Simulated assay, not measured.
Amino acid sequence: MSQGSARERLLDAAARRFYEDGVHATGIDTITSEAGVAKKSLYNNFSSKAELVSAYIDSRHEEWLGLHQARAAKASTAADRVLTVFDAYIDHANDAYGKGFRGCGLLNAAAEFPAGHPARSTVRAHKEQVERILVENLEVMATEAEALELAEHFSFLLEGAVARAGLEGTPARLEHARAIASRMLAAL
C-alpha cells in the first residue's frame, strides 16, 4: 500500500487508472480499491468524480510544470530554454507507465468530454500556458511577432509529436521534434 494521505493515494490511483483505462471507463470503486481507502474517504476529499477528474487534470499540469522547471533551471542559453519544453514532454514519455506511454494524459482526458466541458477548458489553459512559455523564451531571440509565430509552430510540432509518440508507445517522435526545433532555432 502506498504511503501518504487518503487524498494523495486517491489522486495517485486516479492518475494511474485515468491514464491507463480512461476517465469514463474508470469507476469510483476501482479508484478506492487501488488507493486502499473506503468510498466514504473519496467523498470526504472530493465532492464528486468530476471534482476528482478536475484535481487529476490540475495534478498532471503541475507535474509537467515541475518537469519543465527542473529542465529550465539547467538551461544556459535562450535556445536551450526553448528546448526544455520539448525535454519535459520527452521526460513525461519516458516515465514508467503500467500499460505503456499513451500520449498526453491531458489530451486523452479532454477527448472524453464534449466541447465546452470544464475539463476541456482546463486542458486548453494548460496548452496555452505551454505556448506562453515558448513565447517568453523565444522573445529573447526574435521579435515579438516572430516569437508568437514560432511558438505556435513549436506547439503544433509538439502536439503532433506527442500524438504520434502515444500511438507508437515510444518517445522517438518527440525526440525527432526536438531535433527539428533545434535546427529551426539555429537558423534564427
Rank of each mutant, 00 (worst) to 15 (best):
V130H: 09
W64C: 05
D12I: 05
A151K: 15
A72G: 01
T26C: 03
E128K: 09
L148D: 12
N45P: 04
A161W: 03
A151M: 14
V37W: 09
A181C: 06
L52I: 04
K127D: 09
L134T: 03
E63D: 11
L185M: 12
Y89R: 12
E152Q: 14
R178A: 13
D58M: 08
G4R: 15
M1Y: 11
Q129V: 03
V140C: 01
A147N: 05
R60F: 05
H24L: 15
L52R: 10
R16H: 02
A115N: 07
A78V: 01
D91Y: 13
Y19D: 03
A119Q: 09
E34G: 07
G36F: 08
L83V: 13
V82T: 07
A186S: 14
G98M: 01
A25N: 11
D95M: 15
L67C: 01
L185H: 13
A147K: 10
A79G: 12
L65D: 00
R178S: 04
V162R: 15
E149K: 14
M1I: 11
F113E: 14
S48A: 15
E8I: 05
L10S: 11
V37D: 08
V123W: 05
A187H: 05
L65V: 12
G166N: 12
S121T: 12
A88Q: 04
L157R: 12
K99P: 00
R81Q: 09
V140E: 03
H117C: 14
A161H: 13
T143I: 01
A96K: 10
A79I: 03
R178P: 00
A25K: 14
S155R: 15
R17P: 00
I31L: 06
E63W: 03
I28E: 06
A6M: 10
A110R: 04
G4C: 06
A78M: 08
V123H: 03
S54L: 12
A181T: 10
T122E: 13
L52P: 02
A14F: 09
F156R: 14
R183S: 08
Y97D: 01
L185R: 07
L188Y: 07
S155I: 02
L158Y: 04
E34Y: 02
D87W: 08
A79N: 03
V130E: 11
A145E: 14
A79F: 01
H176G: 05
L83S: 08
A115I: 06
S76Y: 02
D12W: 09
A109F: 08
D58I: 02
W64G: 01
A50Y: 01
F154V: 08
E51K: 15
N137S: 11
G100W: 10
A165R: 08
F154D: 05
A79R: 04
V135H: 07
A165T: 13
A78P: 05
V82E: 03
A181K: 11
S54N: 10
R178C: 08
